[in-house]
């Protein structure tokens, strides 16, 4: 629901605001912090044993030397229901990997990271996801009746609260298209979401063309993660626009046990995922 409002507002602004340009603005410099990207996504129908956790450090806003990997940390994940501990090995490039992970639906997991003498931790539950029922292309839907878009449909189960994170990545593009989805208004229905690109010469964006490939991931996520991603996506799409909310620092689910004022960025998520790849015809 909210994303449509935001689209409306962005459209209102873009209609009026013919005039945008890139300028140099001095921004304040905040503290440098550990960033945890612990995304344990279990693809439906696979074992899900191979998992990677990324650790990096934040930088100043205009720093283009991203990412700056963090090495030498101790990383483990514990299944709180079974007590099993999974050790993630340091690959010395910011990646920490395991080949032994065992995903169990509805089980709760805890992440522990020790770095520079400080201990970080976070807890998350693994939620199931619906299958993608259809992926297809069309022209007449979307904002522009002439432009190609890719559509993804899935059936929301009735009577239970579900939260989803949907990610489109066009292989020709740098940035993905992200959706946070809550079933509040679509409970029990088949829902369809589309990704369409509209021509923008100033940014060198072109419409989808036959042959373009888009990777699609649909994840079943927790309510807390949905809230996190909702804000992340909203700010990624429109922070600073006149009709957007005052941007704020995102708060993930990981804390610093030794220094609460130095909380890490990022999130520890454990999800079930379905994915597909679509090639425009």
């Amino acid at each position: 629901m909210k994303s449509y409002y935001i689209i409306v507002l962005i459209a209102l602004v873009s209609l009026m605001a013919s005039c945008t340009d890139v300028i140099e603005v001095d921004v304040p410099e905040g503290p440098i912090r550990l960033t945890i990207e612990a995304s344990l996504d279990w693809e439906k129908g696979t074992a899900g044993n191979e998992q990677t956790i990324l650790l990096s450090s934040s930088t100043t806003f205009y720093d283009n030397q991203m990412p700056s990997p963090v090495t030498g940390a101790l990383v483990t994940v514990t299944n709180n229901d079974t007590g099993t501990i999974f050790n993630f090995e340091d690959q010395n490039d910011g990646r920490y990997t395991t080949a032994n992970f065992i995903p169990v639906l509805e089980n709760s997991y805890t992440l522990n990271v020790t770095h520079n003498g400080e201990r970080y931790t976070g807890t998350e539950t693994l939620f199931p996801v619906s299958d993608i029922s259809e992926v297809f292309q069309s022209k007449e839907d979307g904002e522009d009746d002439e432009a190609l878009e890719v559509n993804v449909s899935f059936q929301d189960p009735e009577g239970i609260e579900n939260y989803y994170y949907l990610r489109f990545q066009s292989r020709n593009d740098m940035l993905p298209e992200l959706f946070d989805i809550k079933d509040e208004f679509i409970d029990g229905n088949e829902a369809t979401f589309y990704y369409e690109k509209t021509e923008d010469e100033s940014n060198n964006i072109r419409e989808f063309e036959p042959g373009d490939i888009v990777d699609i991931k649909l994840l079943g996520v927790s309510e807390d993660y949905y809230n996190y991603m909702q804000l992340l996506i909203e700010q990624f799409d429109s922070a600073g626009d006149p009709f957007s909310a005052t941007p704020v620092a995102l708060v993930g689910n990981c804390i610093n046990l030794d220094d609460s004022s130095n909380a890490p960025y990022g999130y520890f998520r454990v999800t079930q995922m379905v994915q597909d790849t679509f090639t425009f015809e």
């Binding site: 410099e29 960033t35 990096s56 930088t59 600073g240 005052t246 941007p247 620092a249 995102l250």
Partner: peptide
Amino acid sequence: PVTYPNGQYIYEGISIANYSQRNAD
């Protein structure tokens, strides 16, 4: 008054801006 970013980090393959105090800029 507006709120400007005071740093960034990479998450989900994108740069996430971190913001500081409300309406401080």
